[in-house]
Design a protein around this nucleic acid. Sequence first.
DNA 1: GGAACATTGTACCTAACGGTACAATGAGGT
DNA 2: ACCTCATTGTACCGTTAGGTACAATGTTCC
Lengths: 184, 184
Amino acid sequence: MRRIAPDRDSLLAILAEVFREHGYEGASLSLIGEATGLGKGSLYHFFPGGKEEMAAAVIAHIDGWFETNVFAPLQDIDDPRAGIERMLEATDRYFRSGRRVCLIGAFALDDARDLFAKAIKSYFGRWVAHLAEALTRTGHSPARADELAEETVCAIQGALTLGRAFDDTAVFSRALQRARAALG
Amino acid sequence: MRRIAPDRDSLLAILAEVFREHGYEGASLSLIGEATGLGKGSLYHFFPGGKEEMAAAVIAHIDGWFETNVFAPLQDIDDPRAGIERMLEATDRYFRSGRRVCLIGAFALDDARDLFAKAIKSYFGRWVAHLAEALTRTGHSPARADELAEETVCAIQGALTLGRAFDDTAVFSRALQRARAALG
DNA sequence: GGAACATTGTACCTAACGGTACAATGAGGT
DNA sequence: ACCTCATTGTACCGTTAGGTACAATGTTCC
């Protein structure tokens, strides 16, 4: 039928929302069908590998967004401080100031971890590594930069968890503010 | 039959492990039965409310452990510094130096959150509040104490997530070490 | 118009889900 | 010995899970 060209990007965005909201196991095909308005026929047409391929595509999509919006600014050779600031802004934008949860982080905790271990590891690994590199460029020692980078990503992930637990976005805002102070 | 009096504590410990490993949705009754060696008959005898009651019991059990081993030391009026140190040691013990993940944190992220929202909120709320009170007793201003307490619990949760993602317990150890330095 | 192809709804499959019913078992107290 | 009752295994329930098959529908391009 192909009534409207089904925009793959917004399809992946909806899928991501469902996985974020219900976890990997909790995101049933009927939930996904309901959220996307697509029947199983279409779903399996776009993702022959089923749920696992959907989740993998969503992870790749998020990974791509972070690569361009979060990790790339950190690789700015000339102005590492500005790069760090842009990283923090992109992070705030992505997590909608704490209204959103980190899918990759959530997957890291439940049993989706085994399926996507490599991607999860790589995502967090690049975040920490690129931030650490930027921090060495601002004058920190490599060891201190590593420490600070890991601490920052931990703080962000932890704030997302606590913010969700408290149902309070201020937790995330405060964490970002602290990160800004510690890094800047 | 009642062959061996089934120790409720160790039963809850096994249940907790299954929930930790697979999440709420992922922990199927057959997995639980396999892990505990109990059939559905026994399981529903001990927990007539089914899976939801099992998870609730596990949460209550963990909550109790934290209450006595983590939160109580923080309420030591005379020596708040020692209380904080005991809190950190108990935390390290509970999470087995990072080999274990926080069930309550994991539940906060997936769709078990809706079922157990109150308990989750209360657990993290007491942790932050008691730590903040201890910090005011060591001389920090109430505002600074709140900030530091929230930062610390965020750091712990984040480190558990990252540690799991990297499959590396050192992340958690480093986070605890940093917390010790920041608080002590 | 018709061929080729992308897209979809429907029907269906088997396995597993959470949960229930209940009879059988055996230990503890008397 | 006997009654009571906690505990258990087994069989079963309806529902939903993820997944497959396929015919029908358009759309695009020649």
